[in-house]
Design a protein around this nucleic acid. Structure first.
Length: 295
DNA sequence: CCCCAGGGCCATA
DNA sequence: TATGGCCATGGG
């Protein structure tokens, strides 16, 4: 069995990664064990299955199947590094939090928590569409139904480990196909539309990355049907790792801040911006730490 | 039965 | 440009 490892950065807690990946929800794209997480990813034309665990100084990546592609070790290191945001220096964020009555407790309690990404932008968009306006429990149920029906998997010790469906597959579906697994016709419509865009290379991700700032990127993404301000910010944060994203309108975020600041009602937009003021360049991390406080 | 979920589109004025 | 209805379903 092949195995590679990555040096753990300063200010990093693998336990926090595991906690967030679990969070009481049953995510169909990874399996969390007490001391590891098992995940399948697509590499070239095959599915690669690995288990991630830690020792004192390293994250250890163990291959659980036997992929043919060469250079798979480097791909895995690169995937894990991006997925768990291992290259970022968190110390500026923690410095900003120092002395802030609402936020310093979070960086202490969740010390070493890093933003967990969704490297595949198509998957990130689909997850947003699915999650819009429904509770997360039901959202995970919808995602699982879609992944199990249209995704591919590798079996390991009798367990199926799925990767997210390719856009080419979802692009061929009808609205009725997705309604059959409890999607609303709007969600079905949006997802299929996105699948068509991605399968036809209708979104130039490199051009997107080259835009001068996040506002321009949000503007561009909001042209896509089904994508609004919340989804655009979410995708920029989780896929492109833009650090200045605030998921405006996010029910969880608003409720989290309401609880942290002991407000009578959810903050309005002005109050939200006020909460984030002083955290320029770290808004995305602050959002993520607020999410960490939920359930 | 009510309201709300990690929203966004569309019709109306 | 602002507002309200609508979507589908489940949990509280």
């Amino acid at each position: 069995m092949k195995s590679v490892q990555v040096l753990k950065p300063q200010l990093y807690s693998f336990k926090e990664s595991l906690w967030f990946l679990d969070r009481g929800f049953d995510d169909c794209l990874h399996k969390v064990t007490p001391n590891s997480v098992i995940k399948a990813i697509r590499n070239q034309n095959e599915v690669v299955l690995f288990e991630l665990s830690e020792d004192n100084q390293h994250l250890k990546i163990n291959l659980l199947n036997d992929p043919k592609s060469i250079g798979i070790e480097d791909e895995l290191i690169s995937f894990v590094t991006e997925w768990l945001d291992l290259e970022r220096d968190l110390s500026p964020f923690y410095k900003l939090a120092e002395g802030n009555n609402h936020i310093q407790p979070l960086t202490e309690q969740y010390n070493g928590l890093r933003l967990i990404g969704i490297p595949d932008m198509f998957e990130a968009f689909c997850w947003c569409i699915i999650g819009q306006q429904i509770n997360l429990t039901f959202a995970h149920r919808l995602k699982t139904a879609m992944v199990q029906k249209y995704g591919t998997y590798v079996a390991h010790e009798g367990v199926k480990h799925y990767v997210f469906p390719r856009p080419e597959v979802l692009a061929e579906l009808s609205i009725e196909d997705l309604k059959a697994i409890q999607f609303s016709k709007q969600k079905a419509d949006y997802v299929i539309g996105l699948a068509k865009i991605f399968s036809e290379n209708g979104l130039d991700i490199d051009a997107l990355k080259n835009l001068p700032n996040s506002q321009k990127m949000i503007q561009e993404l909001c042209k896509i049907r089904g994508v609004g301000e919340w989804t655009a910010n979410y995708v920029l944060m989780k896929t492109l790792k833009r650090m200045d994203c605030i998921t405006y309108g996010d029910a969880g975020l608003l409720n989290g801040i309401k609880a942290i600041c002991d407000l009578d009602q959810k903050p309005n937009r002005t109050e939200l911006d006020e909460f984030f003021s002083g955290f320029d360049g770290w808004q995305s991390y602050l959002v993520f730490y607020i999410w960490r406080t939920l359930v």
